[in-house]
Simulated scan of single mutants.
Amino acid sequence: MSLSAVLTANNKTLSTLNGLLAAQPALVTALSSAQGITILAPSNDAFSKILSTSAGMALEKDPSMITALLQYHVLNGSVPASAFTTTAQFIPTLLTNTSFANITGGQVVMGMLSGKSVEVFSGLKEKSTVTTADIMFSGGVMHIIDTVLTIPLSASASAIDSQLTTLAGALTKTSLVTTVDSLKDVTIFAPSNKAFQDIGSAAGSLTNDQLSSILEYHVIAGTVGYSSLLTSGLANETLPTVLGGEGVAIESVDKKVFVNSAQVVITDIIVANGVMHVIDNVLNPSNTTASPVPTATSQAVAFAGVSAASDVPFTSGISATTTAPSASTMTAAAFGGMPSGAVGMAALFGAGAAVVVGF
Rank of each mutant, 00 (worst) to 15 (best):
E246L: 06
I188A: 04
L176D: 05
L206H: 08
E237N: 02
T179Q: 10
S227C: 13
G245Q: 11
A195N: 13
P240W: 13
F189H: 09
S182W: 05
S182M: 03
S162H: 07
Q197V: 05
L206A: 01
G200D: 12
D209Q: 11
V224S: 12
E237I: 03
T187M: 10
I199W: 12
E216Q: 14
A170L: 05
Q210C: 00
V219I: 15
N236R: 08
S232V: 07
V186T: 15
T207W: 10
Q197M: 15
Q163P: 10
A235L: 03
L206M: 06
S201P: 05
G169Y: 05
S205F: 06
L183A: 13
L230D: 00
F189T: 00
S205N: 10
K194E: 14
S227Y: 14
F189E: 05
D181K: 02
T238H: 09
G225A: 15
A202S: 09
L167G: 07
S227G: 07
D185L: 04
T174P: 06
V248E: 00
F189Y: 14
Q210G: 01
T207E: 08
H218P: 01
T231A: 03
T238A: 14
F189I: 08
L171N: 09
P240R: 10
L215I: 05
S162Y: 04
A235R: 11
L229Q: 09
A168Y: 07
S162F: 03
S182P: 03
T178E: 07
S192T: 15
V248I: 14
T207C: 03
G244L: 08
F196G: 09
L234N: 02
A190L: 13
V242I: 15
T207N: 15
V248H: 09
S232P: 14
A221S: 15
S175Q: 09
Q163S: 15
L230H: 00
L176Q: 06
I220R: 07
G222E: 04
G233K: 12
E237D: 05
L183F: 09
I199Y: 09
E237C: 02
L230S: 00
